[in-house]
Write a protein that binds this DNA or RNA. Structure first.
Lengths: 212, 212, 212, 212
DNA sequence: TAGTAAGCGAGACGGTACGTCATGTCTTACT
DNA sequence: AGTAAGACATGACGTACCGTCTCGCTTACTA
């Protein structure tokens, strides 16, 4: 079975699937409470009771619809994440790569959605299931988009045939994630430019070799 | 009644360790308990009470010497981390870089110390102070070592004068951290080789450009 | 190797009993600390650590010389209690009884020593050993003094031969203790006078009968 | 919208006890645990954790409904105390007084409820609030009952008009409390008889005088 | 048009762990 | 030997949240 899964949106009240009448109001105010509290007090002090109170909702309602704090965060995150993913496509590899790298850096380091993402990534270090969900629901797609400009360029012949978009993307984006998640250094435009230039200089000169 | 009762006292060693005040015995058994429990039950279920019990130590003793669970982890980590840091130096850049990258990958993904490190990195996402400590006490040094083979090669003239060791290191190691911490992909020797080759291909051909 | 065991002080130093040289200074400052703290913060918040700190003494020193907090209180109490016990003796029963009753009431309700005594009596409810000590070291004597005016009067022929001083004392002093320890009513001179008058009226009229 | 909101009231009693919110089951098992533990291990070793465990209840539940160990004891005591209070009324003062004095002595010295009462009285020495509660919730009533036979006798003309029941009661019961709480002597029937006889001998002969 | 049952806010419940406090014992270094 | 200092194992404290569980209410769908 496969459903369109999108909110029908008009007035309506389709009562999709098996649920009878879940309160959309409650759902939304919970997710907003999560967003708000995460920014205001941080993940460490985020509690189900706090969320329930802030949302004006009973704990039971939260437990009815989400199985854990992390799943709640996943939901709150999905709501906001998609805006940041899609790369521009100007037809000029260098520009597209720079622009998307800049966008990813901005998302990771400075956006509210990025804050939630970092929290989730942190939890994923302790929780394999969450890690798996996070990957399948977000990272796979994210990675696809990071590869996109390179694959387009390959198609256009802007890169040598043997260039490996996966590997090239890793060399551009890996260091960005590292700075945000590990070293805490700010990701400057100059750093991004250098990464992109170095990566492209290389492939133009020699082609890239296959990765794992 | 009077008994000899005196330590024959060959050499010193009257009381184990350096106990002038603090019990070295307690300190060590706590850190070992942390290591053991972290591996056995994971960070999420690690409790101070559990550590105290396992170590045969009172909670108060833990709180007397460590201000938080994270600081405890930092200590437990420092104890083990240094083994993994120092790169080989054969005088051949490609080999040294591959070897050290392999070592870092092994540390991050498969060692006990790496498990503690990942847990700390996760906590550091929620706690700026911890992040700062982690950086100053470990990452700075770690990064220095990652740059070392490149700097040596630069010195030897194996790299162009304008090569930027920092940036090159970022392109080799960034993707490794990414795989371990974010995407969960295994870091294969082939992947490492590809990263190193691509990075060096570039610099030999064109020199690298300065980053931020 | 241990042998010489030099006595710094040759002859002398023997003095009291078996102890070598207990610090009188410490003993006194502990007892004073107990008095002070009991008045300032009350029994409920009196701690050995607090006493040690206030007295400038180590906990060990306290534990060396007193086996429990209550024993400490007993000591502190003995120091002050004796002042209150001895009745006047004017040769007029009614006056002597009134005066001593007044004195006992004052001691119980308003003196510092009385505060310690009430605290001890309270602890004695939970601790049979303390109760026993309190009785043998204080109450027996206290009771003797309460009987004294009556026995003197009996001797003088001021009371009938068959009067029971013990019982009469109980009827005068029992209600006073009751008011202080149980009902919390203040013990007024009028109440005392009434007690004494009623008790004596009785014995003059009829003689008293033997109690248990 | 507006609802009458009144309790239908008739049948009611749906779930055991009055549970609208609070669990009557928990309340009772806590109070029973207190009773049991107090008798078994004594006040000094009575802990909230012990009570919770014995009652099969969480600590939080205890703290939710009782603000302190002493308040808990008050509750446990109220439950049992009333049985002991009401004096017999045969119409013969001497008999009624003896019987009630005997009953009070039995309660104070030998009953379980009396053990709780003595513990409370002890705590009341250190805690003015508890003392106040104990007086208003128990002692006032207790004292009324102690006066009752005397007042009835006064009404019947069995006592002189100017007799003061309060004072007479004090002389009968004061010494009983003193023996139980202070001197530890057992309260024998002979002692009680002597107290009553002496007290009545007096009033019959001379009338009593007003106290404070 | 009433009855029924799901979702809901509220919050009590049995638990676990927290971080703190005081206990009584111990060791060390000093006098 | 007695002492001040203070680390130590122990155990209870009172608090914060956990996840589960009624309860009584409101509402939308059925019968």
């Amino acid at each position: 079975m496969e459903s369109t899964e999108n909110e029908p949106a008009p007035a309506a009240r389709r009562h999709h699937g098996n649920r009878h009448r879940r309160s959309e109001e409650a759902r939304i105010s919970v997710l907003q409470a999560v967003d708000g509290l995460l920014v205001e007090i941080g993940y460490a002090r985020l509690t189900i009771e706090g969320i329930a109170q802030r949302a004006g909702v009973s704990k039971q309602t939260i437990y009815r619809w989400w199985s854990s704090k992390d799943e709640l965060l996943m939901d709150a995150f999905s709501k906001d994440a998609s805006d940041w993913m899609i790369p521009s496509d100007t037809g000029r590899l260098r520009d597209d790569l720079r622009a998307h790298a800049q966008r990813v850096a901005e998302f990771m380091a400075n956006s509210d959605a990025g804050a939630v993402f970092r929290a989730l990534l942190a939890q994923a270090q302790h929780d394999g299931d969450l890690a798996e969900r996070l990957r399948s629901e977000f990272l796979v797609e994210q990675k696809t988009y990071e590869r996109l400009p390179l694959e387009a360029a390959l198609q256009r012949g802007e890169l040598p045939q043997n260039a490996d978009p996966d590997l090239l993307a890793a060399q551009v984006f890996g260091p960005i994630y590292y700075r945000v998640l590990v070293s805490g250094e700010t990701v400057t435009p100059a750093f991004i430019d250098a990464l992109v230039d170095l990566t492209l200089a290389n492939t133009v000169a020699s082609g890239s070799r296959p990765g794992s």
